[in-house]
Design a protein around this nucleic acid. Structure first.
Length: 457
RNA sequence: UCCCCAUUAGCUCAGUCGGUAGAGCAGGUGACUGUUAAUCACCUUGUCCGUGGUUCGAGUCCGCGAAGGGGAGCCA
């Protein structure tokens, strides 16, 4: 039985068997205490071993990290600290962890733990983190399932860099030492796919195609960017959630984003209580209060033009100057959501020059139907738009931005027969986790982070 | 990619004015105890990131390099 279940619903006097890894051994002459953890919850179960047990001499020498199976009787604990403990009748040692086990019974730095990413899931912080991550992944699928959204697996290998969203990782089977060439250029027609391919930077374009068949869809999958970004917020491989709705405009898009974000805040507070308390006390003491506030609030909406007015009126000095037409920096976003709105804020209708080609042109001719959801402490967390469904305007915009129609003929086809208004947004899964746990480095919210120069494990 | 900070024991760090390195934890031994990252006593552990230089002498000062962290840009 899992330790979480026993601690929650175990009954005193009954027999239970658990398996897990040793967190701590405290040995005395007549009795030894083992804290055993199996990953099912933050805390472990206290195992009490009497010195009369034949394996007692081995047990008191067990190192942190050893793997055990224990069978015994659940009894009410006479000491404070835990309600129940397991009085061991038998202890089976799978493997005693030697003293060179890198995790000690003390606090380690995140930097150090990254160098032992294969072992860090056995720590309190990463145990809590990956339980929350798993819960959120399932909650996301649930949210969309409850609303009849189709889950679509868009391709990971792609031939198009859809929005120029970043450098593509190349996928090839060509001999790198001596690739076939034509006129000096690498001849990708000889490659596996008979063309140049890479790893996807977004599933959105394919998602749109499915929205135009199933009405409401979402993707939730890995995404890759070969940018040389060395920051706490960027990874070369990350997971992204991208819903897309047919017959929806920007307002409907923002409404979905709000419902979605508040749903996840609520669920994680309601159902990851123990782990969230841990983050609240160890990472960020304002965490639960902040998330609760978001879960209960109605998000405000502000036009980009109004945002610029507000920023220019601000008494705070900004590093980056503000004028109509510039993209908002993190400092601007935080000012708007923290000082002006004091809560989550949608900024909508951005200048077309700073946004992607597929965003729908507004009637004013200079803005597009884009929206960013800004939240306190972070800034932008969701970005979305209504898509340009009018074929002529879309092609015109692509021409202006120098995007070739050739590789996107299938995307343009979606605007030829039965095109309709549609909208969607993207949410970086790791950034969501960072927001909800207070963890400050993206490398610490993904099991085995891939960043420039790092693909270990 | 740019700017800044740091790299010393297994881990977290201190190291004064340039004079051959120290603490806590971990580990070992023992004691003690229904313990709670147990406690107490004693003990072990070093390519001071690498490299070149200045100097009688470099963990300490200077150059180069490497890897790390933070911030920025780009973004999710």
């Amino acid at each position: 039985m899992r330790i979480k279940q026993i601690l929650a619903q175990g009954r005193g006097g009954e027999e239970y068997a658990v398996s897990g890894w040793v967190r701590s051994v405290r040995a005395g002459k007549g009795v030894a205490f083992i804290v055993l953890n199996d990953g099912s919850c933050l805390g472990g179960i206290q195992i009490v071993v009497d010195s009369l047990l034949p394996s007692f001499p081995q047990i008191v020498r067990l190192g942190t990290g050893s793997s055990l199976a224990v069978a015994g009787t659940l009894v009410e604990s006479p000491a404070t600290g835990q309600r129940f403990e397991l009085a061991a009748a038998s202890v089976t040692i799978y493997q005693d962890a030697a003293l060179d086990y890198p995790l000690q019974k003390k606090r380690h730095s995140f930097e150090y733990l990254r160098t032992i990413a294969h072992l860090r899931p056995r720590t309190n912080t990463f145990g809590a983190l990956f339980r929350v991550r798993s819960f959120l992944a399932q909650a996301i699928h649930q949210f969309f399932a409850e609303r009849d959204f189709l889950c679509v697996h868009t391709p990971i290998i792609t031939a198009n860099d859809c929005e120029g969203a970043g450098e593509l990782f190349r996928v090839t089977t060509l001999d790198l030492a001596a690739p076939p060439r034509i006129k000096g250029e690498v001849d990708f027609s000889a490659d596996f796919f008979s063309r140049s391919t890479g790893l996807t930077v977004s599933g959105q374009l394919e998602g749109e195609l499915f929205a135009l068949a199933f009405s409401d869809i979402y993707t939730f999958g890995p995404t890759f960017r070969a940018e040389n970004s060395n920051t706490s917020r960027h990874a070369a491989e990350f997971w992204m959630i991208e819903p897309e709705m047919a017959f929806a405009d920007l307002a409907a898009d923002a409404a979905l984003a709000e419902e979605f974000f508040r749903y996840l805040c609520r669920r994680v507070l309601d159902e990851c209580g123990e782990d969230m308390e841990f983050f609240n006390s160890h990472m960020d003491t304002g965490l639960i209060q902040r998330i609760r506030k978001v879960a209960d609030s109605t998000f405000q909406v502000m036009e980009y033009g109004e945002a610029i007015v507000q920023l220019r009126r601000a008494k705070v000095p900004f590093v980056y100057p503000v004028a109509w037409g510039v993209d908002l920096q993190t400092e601007h976003e935080r000012y708007l959501t923290e000082q002006v709105a004091d809560g989550p804020l949608f900024v909508i209708n951005y200048p077309r020059e700073i946004k992607a080609f597929y965003m729908r042109g507004n009637d004013d001719g200079r803005t597009v139907a884009a929206m960013d959801l800004l939240v306190p402490k972070v800034g932008e967390i969701i970005g979305g738009s209504q898509r340009e469904e009018r074929s002529d305007l879309l092609r015109q915009r692509m021409a202006e931005m120098g995007i070739s129609e050739e590789g996107l003929w299938w995307y343009l086809d979606s605007r030829r027969w039965g095109s309709c208004p549609h909208a969607g947004f993207g949410l970086g899964f790791e950034r969501l986790i960072m927001y909800l746990t207070g963890m400050e480095n993206i490398r610490d919210v993904i099991p085995f982070p891939r960043t420039p120069r790092h693909a270990e494990f």
